[in-house]
Design a protein around this nucleic acid. Sequence first.
RNA 1: GCCCCCAUCGUCUAGUGGCCCAGGACGAAGCCCUCUCAAGGCUUAAACCGGGAUUCGAAUUCCCGUGGGGGCACCA
Length: 493
Amino acid sequence: MAIKPARTRFAPSPTGHLHLGGARTALYAYLLAKKTGGQFILRIEDTDVSRTVPGAEQEIMDGLRWFGLNYDEGPDIGGRYGPYRQTERREIYHLHINTLVNSGHAYPCFCTPERLDAVRQEQQKRKENTHYDGTCRILDPDDAARRVANGESYVVRFKMPREGHTTAHDHLRGDIVTENKQLNDQVLLKSDGLPTYHLAAIVDDHEMEITHVLRGSEWLGTFPLHVNIVRAFGWDEPLWIHLSVFLKPSGKGKMSKREAVDAIKDGHSFLIKDMQDLGFTPEGVLNWIALMGWGVAEDDVMTTTQMIDRFSIESLTPSPAAINFQKLDHFNATHIRLLTSEDLAARIKPYFIREGLKVNDDLLLKIVPLLRERLVTLDDCLAFGSFFFKEDVLPNREDLIAKGLDSKQSALAARSAYQILLAQPTISHESCEPPLRAYVEQSGFNINQVFGILRVAVTGQKVSPPLFESMEIIGREKCLARIKNAMDMLEGM
RNA sequence: GCCCCCAUCGUCUAGUGGCCCAGGACGAAGCCCUCUCAAGGCUUAAACCGGGAUUCGAAUUCCCGUGGGGGCACCA
């Protein structure tokens, strides 16, 4: 059972929000690192300065922490292999790009974007595969070096072999063979002096001694390029694992703006920052995304610890997975039920406070057992429990009239129940239910009618946690007052 | 257009040549429990994309279709 410790990384670019796909990539990388006793690293790929969004980096870090996916090295905590922001690693890339140019694996290119554009259009017109035409590939290296020294604007391109083929090995798909003539002389270093992803990621993964690269399958297209770069350097390759993409719920295509709007409308989102507000728990979300792309035979309800225990890159699946929010609800509800009362209380408290309610902690702890199995999302605590924190309750007149009865009959039932409860020194399940049931027996009304009137009277709503347990928590005085009030309302109709 | 990847119930998946008239989970339907709503228990319906080939035997291997996804930037 001697597994080599894996060093894995999550390497997002700070250009937008942390979403489900990114979170899953991070999760798998985290699980693999923890499983093998290795390290999980956060690296920020911010080489496209124009696309960098202020706050995005922070959001990524907050998201990972919310999930409990704590990284061992990262921009805010440092580490032996830092810095962990690519814009802070310019010198490292320049060093390596020089190596590549000197060994003939890369070359400076002075073509202007305008010329490149023209070439591309020309190729499209001829229905050719668009690719760099190689103008600067055949430049004399000394001439090129002179032009660079003169301050001429340039990029550095990778000199892709024109003949033969490249075999790249993906752990989930096996060997992927590509003809080299299909490949392009990609830009490695941009004219602003910053590297492109292709160079930066490969250099960093090597420098940071990453053993397993887990990334999205959108990188499959440039995968042959990447292995060629690694080989040009003469480095050992990491194990490459390209994760499947997430599809929209219909299974047709990736999530888009349109689906994002629909998801929000129905209380869901694929943005991590929204999840917390929507009442989802990190445990629920994690469990849900873990299973999209990981084949777990049975017992699929897991905590992070259990996931670490059972995780294996052998059981990852390469096919795309459609998002299923109903399943998220299920896992969220399931994990809520797994929480201790203290934990659940602490988690739902903010939702009551957000609603402007004054929360008494003792009371909160008492109602938690009544709420627990009724919550799908944490904010459902409002629908089932806000009346506990209100002085008064305002039932709808119509709701007080029991199904199948008129207002007079309902008033009679309320009055009778009131008198029975009034005779009880304390209100509890044990003391109240038997006499009330006895009354139901002899009154000719049914349980649902009588208990229903009381429910609306005491809680102000038609759906609530169990009646007697709720009344016990609310207390004798308040319950009696509320029933009296309901009685008056019914009799005044 | 070119290149690459993928393909088991509606969805996520188990399955690595016989243990599969295909198993689990979500969802659906029904029943039980029940003061409402849940939770819980039990049950049912529901799939190997199509065609060839290999083999005594294929969901599992190979080929060809078809469908879906991704990529073809000085973006990641």
